[in-house]
Design a protein around this nucleic acid. Structure first.
Length: 270
DNA sequence: ATGGTCGATATTCGA
């Protein structure tokens, strides 16, 4: 290996809203961008229905936590996915929700623990599902804290279903207190940051107004009304390697697109 | 303006 070789790790997170209905988009995206690690959410299928063959053909090792019809998360990595963990939620009522998968993998000499996270949307503020959303944040925080204490590099990307700040939504006044932008959930998200995790996009683009999700129902994409509810959070030791971060927003304009665009961060091996 | 549109599934649920 050349001493001067600067290598870049591309890590992408994407709520794909059904991996089976979006498989051609996924393949097109991979061929164009060649991510080293791809974190998927809302695959909406069980493991035995996941398109392993098509994606292994593109050079990926794959870890899947599947569920019929709803939720489902996966990790694709050019390197082997080791030490897979999914048991974040043990509550009987929500145990079957496949919303978290984590593994160890390597990218260009970086040893990373990576997680693909699909935080509950919450359905309605103050509902039982909203309470579960807040509990999910607590469980995630405890898990991340454990990993930070082991001094591993953590890259945890996903649909956090919260827009952290005013800059992250199209109309902060109107949306204040509504699902995805309620103070309680924003505090839960901030708590991850206060623990030391960095919002890679915001660290590198402090003033950018960019979104990652546009609602189907209100034709949000057509009206430029979106929210930045997908994030790639990184531990402080991984943040030292951050080079850039952004949103592949053009993907949201593809025909029959997911309501979320892929997001990325790049880490250098230096 | 409390609708709208998706995907999986079954004629409803969850987002």
């Amino acid at each position: 290996m050349l001493a001067l070789g600067i290598l870049m790790a591309l890590i992408v997170s994407w709520n794909i809203n059904s991996v089976k209905s979006r498989l051609l988009h996924l393949i097109k995206f991979i061929e164009a961008n060649q991510p080293d690690v791809l974190l998927l959410q809302e695959i909406k299928c069980e493991k035995h229905n996941f398109p392993f063959l098509e994606l292994e053909e593109l050079g990926y090792n794959i870890a899947v936590h599947g569920q019929k019809s709803y939720n489902g998360v996966a990790i694709l990595s050019k390197s082997p996915t080791e030490d897979v963990f999914t048991a974040l939620i043990e509550e009987p009522d929500f145990k079957e929700h496949a919303r978290y998968i984590e593994c160890f993998t390597r990218v260009h000499g970086l040893n990373l623990r990576v997680a693909s996270v699909y935080v509950p949307q919450g359905t309605e503020v103050d509902s039982e599902r909203f309470a579960f959303k807040l509990r999910f944040y607590k469980a995630m925080e405890a898990r991340y804290r454990q990993i930070l204490m082991q001094d591993e590099m953590l890259v945890a990307g996903g649909d956090y279903n919260v827009a952290p700040e005013n800059i992250d939504v199209y109309d902060p006044k109107k949306l204040d207190g509504s699902l995805g932008f309620h103070l309680e959930e924003r505090k839960s998200f901030r708590s991850l940051l206060n623990m030391g995790m960095k919002d890679s996009f915001r660290v590198l683009n402090p003033l950018s107004h960019e979104y990652s999700w546009w609602d189907y129902r209100s034709s949000g994409w057509q009206h430029h009304k979106g929210m930045r509810i997908d994030q790639i959070l990184v531990s402080p030791n991984a943040a030292n390697h951050l080079q850039s971060a952004g949103v592949y927003s053009e993907v949201r304009g593809w025909e029959k697109a997911s309501d979320h665009a892929p997001i990325f961060c790049k880490l250098t091996n230096l």
